[in-house]
Amino acid sequence: MKIAFSSSGDSLESPFDSRFGRCRKFIIYDDAADSFEVVDNSQNLNAAQGAGIQSAQNVVKAGVAAVVSGHCGPKAFRALSAAGVKVYNCEFRTVKEAVQAFKSGGLKEADSADVEGHW
C-alpha cells in the first residue's frame, strides 16, 4: 500500500515536515515495492485558506491508504476520513525515520484531528 509522508524535500533523507496542509512535498512510499515517488504540494504554501483540504485531495489522488505527518487539523481530517485514509501523527527528524517507524508498526492511528485549524 501507499503511504504519504509530509516532507520539506524530495528524498528519504529530507527533513520530515510536521505540517500536513502546508508541507512542500509528499513522499509517497510504497511498502510492497519499497520505493517512493514525490508529489509536489508547494501550491498550498501560500493558500489563503483550505490548504489542508487541498493537501488531502493531493494525497488521495496519489492513491494513498495512510498519511504520516506531524499534525492534522479538523478540515484535513474530515477530508481524509471521507476518503478512507488513515492518519498517523508523529515527530521525526527525517522522512526515513518516519518510514521506519511506520514499517515497524510503532505509530498509533489518530481517531480525530489533533490541532485546531490554522495552528
Binding site: A48, Q49, Q54, Q57, V60, A83
Partner: peptide, 12 residues
C-alpha cells in the same frame, strides 16, 4: 476558496 473537496468516491 477550497470550499469543496473531491476525494475519489466522495465530494465534501
Amino acid at each position: 476558496f477550497n470550499a469543496i473537496a473531491s476525494l475519489g468516491s466522495s465530494t465534501l
